[in-house]
Amino acid sequence: MSIDWQIQNAGEQSVIVYADCSDLDKANAAISQLHRQLVDSTLPITSMVPSYQSLLVSYDSDVMPYLDLRARIKALLPAEALEDKGGRRLTVPVCYGAGDVCDLDAVAKSTGIAVDEVIALHSETEYRVYAIGFAPGFAYMGSLDTRLQLPRMSTPRTAVPAGSLAIAESQTAIYPQASPGGWHILGQCAAPVFTLQPSHQTIWKVGDRVRFEPVAQSELAHVGISIDE
C-alpha cells in the first residue's frame, strides 16, 4: 500500500506534511517515522506536531527559507510505506467500573452488550496513539471495536476526574488531569499519564501501541504501566 505524500505550506514559518493512505495505521506509522527522522536531522526546526496522518513542522526561515526546507524534507520522504515496526508497546492497568464518575453500566445499556463483554471488547483490542492534544498528555487512541462506538455525550460533564478511562466514537483516551469532557467513562487508571515535575513528560508518543489490562480496584495503586521498547 503506497503513501501519497504532500507538503503544504501552513504559515509564515511552518509547513505541514500529509501522508495520505487508505490505511490510517500505515499513514500514522509513516508520520511517526518521519517525525523521528526530523528530530535527528540538522534542519533548523523549532517545533513539530505529529497527529493522525500529518506532521506540522515549524522552522527558522532565517536559517533556511521555505523552498530549501521543503526540498530537504521532500528528499527524506520514503516512496513506499515502511514496515510498521516503530513505536513502543504500553500496557496500562485500569479498573473498569471504578471511580465516582462512571458510565460503564450506561455504555452496556446503550450498546446492548453485557458489562463483562464491554470490558473484554475494550481490553482485548490493541490501540494506536494517533495524536496527543486537547490537554497536555491527552492521547487519542483507536480504533475502538465498532460494537462499542457511541457518539459523544450531548451535554459534556463540567468535571471528569484525572485518570478516567473514556471512549467516544472510534476512540479511547485517559484524562491526564481533571477537566471538562464529553466522553463516556469506563473506569479508572491510577498511574499518572502526564507529569509536570520534575521531568515534564507524558508516557505516550504518537505511534505507540497501547493495551489496557483489567485489574481489581485493590490492585490499582500497586500495578504500574509497563513499557516494551
Partner: peptide, 10 residues
C-alpha cells in the same frame, strides 16, 4: 478532517 497541528497565527 483529521485533527492536525495548528501553527501560530493559523
Amino acid at each position: 478532517l483529521f485533527s492536525e497541528g495548528i501553527c501560530f497565527g493559523a
